[in-house]
Amino acid sequence: MFKKRTVLALVIALSAVSSPLQAKASPYPAAQMKDRSYYEERGDIVWEVPTEEKYMALTFDDGPDPQQTLKIMEVLKQYEAKATFFLVGDRVERYPEVVRQELQEGHEIANHSFRHPSFQGLPGNVMEDELIKTQDAIYKATGQKPVLFRPPGGYYNEKIIHLSKEHHLQMVLWSWHQDTNDWRSPGVSRIANKVLNNARNGDIILMHDFVHNSNQTTEALKIILPELKKRGYSFVTISELLSHKVAPKNHIKVSH
Rank of each mutant, 00 (worst) to 15 (best):
Y95A: 08
A31K: 07
P96N: 10
D61L: 06
K54G: 10
F119M: 10
H116D: 08
K24G: 00
L122R: 05
F60R: 05
P66M: 06
T84H: 04
R115S: 14
R115H: 13
R94F: 00
I132P: 04
T84W: 04
V75Y: 02
R36L: 14
H107W: 07
S118E: 06
L70I: 12
V49P: 01
P123M: 08
Y39K: 04
A25D: 11
S26Y: 15
M127I: 15
E40C: 01
P64Q: 05
G89I: 00
S113E: 05
L103C: 03
Q101V: 00
N111W: 04
M56P: 01
K82R: 12
E130Q: 14
L131H: 03
V88T: 15
R36V: 15
Q68R: 04
V126W: 08
Y39W: 14
F119T: 08
V75I: 14
I45S: 06
L58F: 10
P123Q: 01
E105T: 10
D65V: 05
D61C: 11
E53A: 09
V92C: 09
R115T: 15
Y95E: 09
I132M: 03
T84S: 04
G43A: 03
E52N: 15
K133T: 12
E93A: 12
E80N: 15
E80S: 14
A30V: 15
R36A: 15
D65L: 02
G43M: 03
H116F: 09
H112Q: 02
L87F: 08
M73H: 02
M73N: 05
E130V: 07
Q78W: 06
P123H: 00
D61Q: 12
I132E: 01
R94C: 00
V46L: 10
E40W: 03
R91D: 10
P66W: 02
H116L: 09
V75H: 03
H107I: 10
T59R: 03
E52V: 04
M33T: 05
P96V: 08
D61T: 07
F114K: 06
Y28C: 11
A23T: 13
E74T: 05
E48S: 15
A30K: 15
D44K: 03
E74M: 01
K133W: 13
F85V: 02
V98W: 06
Y39Q: 12
P27N: 04
K54C: 13
Q78S: 13
R94W: 00
A83P: 02
V92N: 11
T59H: 06
V49R: 01
K54P: 11
T51F: 06
R115A: 10
V126H: 08
E53H: 11
S37D: 12
E48V: 01
G106W: 07
E102Q: 13
L103M: 13
G121W: 11
H107M: 05
K24Y: 05
A30P: 00
T59N: 06
E105S: 11
D90W: 07
K82P: 01
V98E: 07
T69K: 08
I132G: 01
P64C: 11
D62E: 10
R100F: 00
L131M: 14
P64W: 08
I132Y: 00
Y38W: 09
F114W: 08
Q120M: 12
A57L: 06
W47L: 10
D90G: 00
A30L: 15
V98R: 06
Q68N: 12
V126T: 11
A57F: 02
D65R: 07
R94G: 00
Q78N: 14
E53C: 04
I45Y: 03
P27A: 02
